[in-house]
């Protein structure tokens, strides 16, 4: 790994509650992820992996320690500034898909672009391209209820990549998919990572999904237990 890291956590703590009820969700986490990496974050529930993802995704802030995004400390950012950072640099894929129901695939995908204030024609063109990329060309007018779970998750990816983010954050993206759909989904992520150079950070507890990644970080009790680079089988 060379060059400046895309994101960097320095001695990050995240503590909930006070005194007796204090819970250390993260304790002294140091982590650096470089552009173009495909990282799987693993760990039991309660190990701190989701908290870590929330901080990386600028949805939460560390209790102490520093989170640097492209070398800039995010510590001083307001709630609104973090929203702008998410808008311009981050893409999210959630376990529960989190698409807006009764809203077509195209409308779902163009949502982040609406917040960017993009013109309608360009918005549509880019949303179509993103849907095309995830293999859903021709399904623009379908609502989530008319799509299978696998297709819904693809719409979610299209929505995450439509704004060409610096990093894609996926929180257990295959949690609601069957094995076959999960593997299809992972192959799509790998393809985006290799061909578009998209940086991917994915939380999962399934070892065979984590195997698609180049690097696996394991959490245990709020600390990084292991951090290993996998030699690609392909």
């Amino acid at each position: 790994m060379s060059g400046a890291p895309l994101i960097e956590l320095r001695s990050v703590y995240r503590i909930y509650g006070r005194g007796e009820a204090e819970i250390r969700a993260l304790a002294a986490v140091d982590l650096a992820i470089h552009p173009g990496e495909f990282v799987a974050v693993m760990g039991a529930s309660g190990s701190g992996k989701s908290t870590c993802m929330n901080i990386v995704g600028c949805l939460d802030t560390p209790t102490s320690g520093a989170y640097l995004f492209q070398g800039v400390d995010t510590g001083g950012l307001s709630r609104d500034q973090r929203a702008l950072l998410r808008r311009h640099y981050l893409g999210f894929v959630f376990q529960g898909f989190n698409l807006l129901d009764r809203t077509t695939a195209l409308e779902n995908v163009e949502l982040p672009l609406i917040y960017r204030g993009m013109q309608r024609s360009e918005r549509h063109a880019r949303a179509r391209r993103a849907l095309d990329k995830v293999g859903l060309a021709g399904r623009e007018r379908h609502t989530p209820a008319e799509l299978s779970g696998g297709q819904q998750q693809r719409v979610a990816i299209a929505r995450a990549i439509v704004s060409e983010p610096a990093i894609l954050l996926a929180d257990e993206p295959t949690g609601n998919l069957d094995t076959q759909r999960s593997h299809e989904f992972m192959r799509l992520l790998v393809e985006l990572n290799r061909e578009e150079g998209l940086t991917v950070v994915m939380v999962t507890h399934e070892a065979d999904m984590a195997d698609y990644a180049q690097r696996i970080i394991r959490f245990r009790d709020g600390r990084v237990e292991s951090d290993s680079t996998v030699e690609s089988a392909a």
Partner: peptide
């Protein structure tokens, strides 16, 4: 929540 995650600001 989805909107906020996708980059909606408070005022949006």
């Amino acid at each position: 929540g989805i909107r906020l995650a996708l980059g909606a600001r408070e005022r949006n």
